[in-house]
Write a protein that binds this DNA or RNA. Structure first.
Lengths: 105, 105
DNA sequence: CATACATATTGACAGTTATCTATGTGTATA
DNA sequence: TATACACATAGATAACTGTCAATATGTATG
């Protein structure tokens, strides 16, 4: 679950969502992303680190440049997780909860 | 997009993910959730507020109790959004970006 | 090797967040 | 109506986060 929390935190920022949107059509280097957003280079670097640590984005060094792309497998894993958590399932915490207030009328 | 950020922030906490898991099988009141987690009542109240403000959870007052349930429409909306942001689409920021470093070898 | 360029790291600062204790509000019941 | 109970709000505090300026690291090229 720590893994998912890291992902949700990575997605909890406007600029990082914009970065993902930018990467949705293909690879970009950090300087491209910097041109698109109105942020300084260290700030971009910081956001890319968070996206990479969440495994949502993969960065590969190509000469002077870092080339970033979306990790679509991780995105799929995330949507699956969201569905799983919110849907009724056999193995679930709630099975062990007996309602102390009888809300079922 | 502010709406989505609010949702991702709501999901960026271990206890709130546990609360959603608890609610996945049906309605629960705040006291049930409090019994399940090891947190004080005001902290539970705080988390429920955040989940409600994100519209992930719906709370209804029934007598003394607040009865909470998952808003599955909002969950669906979220997974759709994640897919949309990360997938190649016609209308996209990245279309207006011309790579300054020629990364396409 | 020296210089220029792309990115990373450090350190600082303001704003936000999770948690608690203390207290307030509203509702059922004796 | 008084009391007990379920939940909300206020205020405090420690920890975390987004941003920047300054600086370091690594790579290509003259």
């Amino acid at each position: 679950m720590e893994d998912k929390i890291r992902i949700f935190k990575a997605l909890s920022d406007k600029n990082r969502l914009l970065i993902l949107d930018m990467l949705s059509c293909g690879e970009l280097c950090a300087c491209d992303i910097m041109d698109g957003l109105n942020l300084t280079q260290p700030t971009i670097s910081h956001h890319m680190k968070i996206l990479q640590e969440a495994n949502l984005v993969i960065g590969v060094k190509k000469g002077k440049w870092m080339v970033y792309s979306i990790n679509r497998d991780k995105v799929k894993e995330l949507t699956s997780y969201i569905k799983e958590v919110t849907s009724n399932k056999d193995k679930c915490i709630c099975k062990s909860i007996k309602s102390s207030c009888s809300i079922e009328e």
